[in-house]
């Protein structure tokens, strides 16, 4: 019953309007808490304070990938069940996912400057994220180019699913390409276990970022529904004028 209720955009809007203030408040609080914990986390013995960028970088990377997951789920909803909100959910997720991926790339690049001595290294993980970012831009361009929202969403849904299937293949091939060429000088992350003094704030930040994602996503879905209403009202206006024989 609940799902059918939510399929009705008006009910969905009411729900969003009720939930959004709480979600926003929770996001702000969790960010304040997480950032405070992150500030107090000890510096890395090797990298110093730059390691703190990881508190933004890692959650952003997770959400960049989750954004594509949300888009793929919405794509299934659009193509299989033709759910009216799935369209909206997919379209709203694309720019948000792209923004998180972009944050991941920028923070990675800022971290790379003191660590690698250059802003960009064709490291396997960063490169995979870059390809993900390009795919996001492609989907956004598709939405941007389509004049009729319905046709645009179906095309974008197909592209999202193709992307979802392709992303692991891309990831694998980029890893393979990178190890093939791996320059010896590149510093490699990971390997050692992460200390709880770093892990706890990282997890808090990850939850805060996830809440931020959903807050932004719900708000963007609301905007998109309203935008489509404005569009149909204007279409009706043109129609009425035609019928009035003006």
């Amino acid at each position: 019953m609940a799902v059918i209720d939510l399929a009705n955009p008006t009910r969905f809007l009411n729900l969003v309007n009720r939930v959004l203030p709480w979600l926003t408040a929770a996001t702000v609080l969790l960010f304040a808490f997480g950032l405070a914990r992150a500030m107090n986390a000890p510096d890395d013995y090797q990298q110093g304070a730059t390691v703190k960028i990881m508190f933004l970088h890692v959650p952003a990377a997770w959400l960049g990938m989750m954004g594509w997951g949300v888009m793929s789920a919405a794509a299934l909803g659009t193509l299989v069940w033709r759910h009216p909100l799935a369209d909206v959910a997919g379209k709203a997720a694309a720019p948000i996912g792209a923004a998180f991926t972009f944050i991941c790339l920028v923070t990675g690049s800022l971290w790379g400057r003191p660590t690698w001595g250059t802003y960009w290294v064709w490291d396997a993980r960063l490169t995979s994220m870059l390809v993900l970012f390009l795919l996001y831009l492609g989907v956004m361009a598709l939405y941007w180019t389509a004049e009729d929202p319905g046709r645009g969403s179906r095309a974008a849904a197909i592209l999202s699913l193709v992307g979802a299937v392709n992303l692991p293949i891309i990831k694998f091939s980029v890893d393979w390409w990178n190890t093939l060429h791996q320059p010896a000088s590149v510093f490699r992350m990971g390997g050692s276990t992460i200390d709880p003094s770093i892990l706890t704030p990282l997890l808090i930040m990850a939850v805060a970022f996830t809440l931020l994602f959903f807050t932004l996503h719900l708000a963007a879905m609301r905007n998109e529904i309203l935008r489509r209403r404005v569009r149909s009202m204007r279409l009706m206006q043109a129609q009425e004028l035609a019928e009035a024989g003006a």
Partner: peptide
């Protein structure tokens, strides 16, 4: 909406990103 203003820049970005995959990541 539907205009091509950013499309050229996007294409530029993609072409340049493809190059290292062909040439290798040697900085």
């Amino acid at each position: 909406v539907g205009g091509g203003a950013m499309m050229g820049a996007l294409f530029f970005l993609i072409v340049v990103v493809m190059m290292p995959f062909a040439l290798g990541p040697d900085l």
